[in-house]
Design a protein around this nucleic acid. Structure first.
Length: 699
RNA sequence: GCGCUCUUAGCUCAGUUGGUUAGAGCGUCCGCCUCACACGCGGAAGGUCAUAGGUUCGAAUCCUAUAGAGCGCACCA
């Protein structure tokens, strides 16, 4: 028996060494497994793409959970003989990364993006992204992830960019991508548009003002944003509202806080007659719904009164004022003119930008969109239908299944997807202009063409991730072998952002599904159930935790009892419990290895173990890792150590049984605790493989 | 407004298709350095499975209602 067993298990001295040995062996790569004859050349493929971490910093506990679950799937399938591929990669995360770097540059040097210029800023971002990338890769390795590094991808690298441009052109040619003037969600802080799902609504106290545009205006109107009223072109009332029926169709002129305005009264059934005064001032350029109402009644969209910096563009006393200042000025003016009728306190949902916290200012902008309600040529269905169908028919299975309802609910509310962003970091929109001419997908050779200034929404490239990582648009062997992938494992919070977009992009581009199963994990919270945030100071860094207790213990703590779709809590105490378990296993090995391996296993005990192995295998096939981890823990500690080993003391006829159970328990436990199981396996007197990682699964 | 989830031991949670005395970890209490392990061993206390009905031979598990908690989407003049 090796001397190392005389001391408690030392994860810190073991894990790095083991990972290096695995990596050097090349066996994370399925081709190498075939070459080294640990996998049959014609074995069925099994593939997962790693949800690419953003290159914005470092990994958090949510990543660690994701890695643990995926590595369990991968290691299990590899041991079962599949040609198993887990593709690593990182995400440039456009807006998230750019805003981190901009903040940093602002803080350190007092410079903004315009001081640096496009090239200058990009240089800084690339340097930051490269550093983040290296940190992340080393962290992925610390957690024991058996990723095939020879196939690493980046959403913004050359192959992925080729895929992005190709898909953009395909969608444009299919008439699904269009450029149009629309109200977009403008983030004045980030100076970019953002999509609907990058908005976070915050409840805030607000005032609802009831006023008239002028003394002779017949209808009082309620608003929370008086400053926008200089941009009003109409007032909408409900068609059945008896109070206002007589005024519908009439037009009025007024000078509102130094600004001449022209108001037409229209009837529209969107108006809620019981809210406020039952009359809505229409500001088409600065409100989604007003834009639509204005459309229906042929009112102008062109009165723009707020600019990209959330400042007023009108003449008079409001000129160049911030919207918040302008609001006070308008209220003062209304009061002094005797036009303000009521002021009430209400709570309002304010739209803010997820990344920057800026308050969203709806503005009309010329943007690129993907149209979701239009027939896809050759498919006879809309993108919306293409996204629904595979889930409806169970070609794609979502775990837990109740999230399918959430998914459908989400898809029903899907609107055209704004894919252009006014930031610099990301895939530049592959469109070139020359006067009236436009070239899509390919840069024209001749002079005089200029490329669109904007970049693509980061989810456009991550939507292609399952096939772009496999080399598409080339018809590579990887693409032909490993697509569609088997499982997509990710947090439920990005079901709409990412999962749906992957289905959308893959259905459109390949007419296929991107994956067969979606496994959704929950959020990792602190011991009190709070979100881990910097401001609360309760962030547990998985790499620190792994250094203290071992990656094996960290993985177990994250997996045991953690059912899909449910948030979990983690604390150092919980991880410590599994560090103790690792040590328990270590001492079991010490005891068993101190005895020679001879004789036959006791049939009753062998059967009992084999039953467990079959049970565990069945659970794994059905994505119940959270049960398997617990069962193995329980069997190894309470049954094997506490009863079987105790019973065996002084009885030589137990020797083979002990070895049999140890060896096979190591195999069952390996996907969960890869390091310590491999370390013990390497000390077994007889081994059936060079590495436990590629040994044969016992059931 | 539409929709989803949760409510099981002091705490955090399991409980796979309804089937014998409802489980685990942590915590608590008592006793042990027993020659694999004190990162350990032995033992103990602790639950009307939110409430009220129903289906069933049988329900923590299925159905209905009620209460509480959390979340998503939409609206938000």
């Amino acid at each position: 028996m090796p001397e190392k067993f005389l001391k408690p298990y030392d994860s810190a001295a073991t894990e790095g060494r083991i990972y290096e040995a695995w990596e050097t062996s090349g066996l994370f790569n399925p081709d190498e497994c075939v070459k080294q004859s640990v996998t049959e050349a014609d074995a069925p493929p099994y593939s997962i793409v790693l949800p690419p971490p953003n290159v914005t910093g470092r990994l958090h506990m949510g990543h660690a959970l994701m890695l643990a679950i995926e590595d369990i799937f991968i290691r299990y399938k590899r041991m079962r003989g599949f040609r198993t591929l887990w593709v690593p990669g990182t995400d440039h995360a456009a807006i998230a990364t750019q805003s981190v770097v901009e903040k940093q540059v602002k803080k350190d040097e007092g410079l903004n993006r315009h001081d640096l210029g496009r090239e200058g800023l990009l240089k800084r971002i690339h340097a930051f992204a490269a550093e983040s990338h290296d940190t992340i890769v080393s962290q992925l390795k610390v957690m024991g992830a058996s990723l095939d590094w020879s196939r690493e991808a980046f959403t913004l690298d050359e192959t992925r960019t080729r895929a992005v441009n190709k898909v953009f052109k395909m969608m444009y040619d299919a008439g699904l991508i269009y450029r149009g003037l629309r109200i977009v969600n403008w983030d004045p802080k980030g100076q970019t548009t953002i999509s609907d799902d990058e908005i976070v609504y915050e409840e805030r106290p607000a005032k609802l003002y009831t006023f008239r545009y002028s003394k002779d205006f017949p209808i009082p109107v309620a608003t929370t944003r008086p400053e926008t009223k200089v941009g009003d072109v109409g007032v909408a009332v409900h068609p059945d509202d008896a109070r206002y029926k007589a005024f519908v169709g009439k037009e009025y002129d007024a000078v509102f806080c130094d600004v001449p305005i022209h108001i037409k009264i229209v009837a529209d059934k969107e108006v809620d007659p019981v809210f406020g005064t039952g009359a809505v001032g229409l500001t088409p350029a600065h409100s989604h719904t007003d834009w639509e109402v204005a459309d229906r009644h042929l009112l102008s969209h062109e009165v723009i009164v707020i600019n990209e910096y959330a400042k007023m563009t009108v003449a008079g006393r409001l000129k160049d004022k911030k919207t918040t200042e302008a609001r006070e000025i308008v209220v003062e003016w209304l009061t002094s003119e005797g036009l303000l009728e009521k002021e009430e306190d209400i709570t309002q949902n304010v739209a803010t930008a997820e990344r920057t916290g800026g308050i969203i200012e709806p503005l009309p902008k010329l943007q690129w969109f993907i149209e979701v309600n239009k027939q896809v040529p050759g498919r006879n269905k809309t993108l919306k239908e293409l996204v629904t169908e595979p889930v409806r028919t169970s070609a794609i299975k979502i775990i837990p299944d109740y999230f399918e309802k959430t998914y459908f609910h989400w898809v029903e509310n899907l609107r055209d997807w704004c894919i252009s962003r006014q930031i610099w970091y990301g895939h530049r929109i592959p469109v070139w202009y020359k006067g009236e001419d436009i070239s899509v997908g390919i840069e024209p050779k001749e002079d005089g063409w200029t490329q669109d200034e904007d970049t693509l929404d980061t989810w456009f490239s991550s939507g292609l991730w399952t096939f772009s990582t496999l080399g598409w648009p080339e018809q590579t062997n990887d693409f032909k072998t490993y697509h569609p992938t088997d499982v997509l494992e990710t947090g439920y919070d990005i079901l709409p952002f990412w999962v749906m977009r992957m289905i959308l992009m893959t259905e459109f581009t390949l007419g296929a599904i991107p994956f067969k199963t979606v496994y959704l994990h929950g959020l990792v919270r602190d011991a009190q159930g709070r979100k881990m945030t910097k401001s609360l100071g309760n962030v547990l860094n998985p790499v620190d935790v792994a250094a203290k207790f071992g990656a094996d213990a960290t993985r177990m703590a994250l997996v045991v009892g953690n059912t899909p779709g449910t948030d979990m809590r983690i604390s150092e105490d919980k991880v410590k419990g599994y560090k103790h378990f690792a040590n328990k296993l270590w001492n079991i090995a010490r005891f068993v290895l101190s005895q020679e391996r001879t004789g036959e296993p006791i049939p009753k005990l062998k059967d009992e173990f084999d039953t467990l192995a079959r049970d565990v295998t069945n659970d794994l096939e059905n994505y119940r890792m959270y049960l398997v981890a617990e069962k193995l823990y329980h069997y190894i500690w309470s049954r094997f150590a506490a009863e079987i080993i105790e019973e065996s003391k002084g009885k030589p006829e137990y020797r083979e049984t002990l070895h049999y159970i140890l060896e096979n328990a190591l195999k069952l436990l390996h996907p969960f605790m890869p390091f310590i199981t491999e370390e013990i396996y390497q000390s077994l007197p007889t081994k059936d493989a060079k590495f436990l990682m590629v040994a044969k699964w016992p059931a």
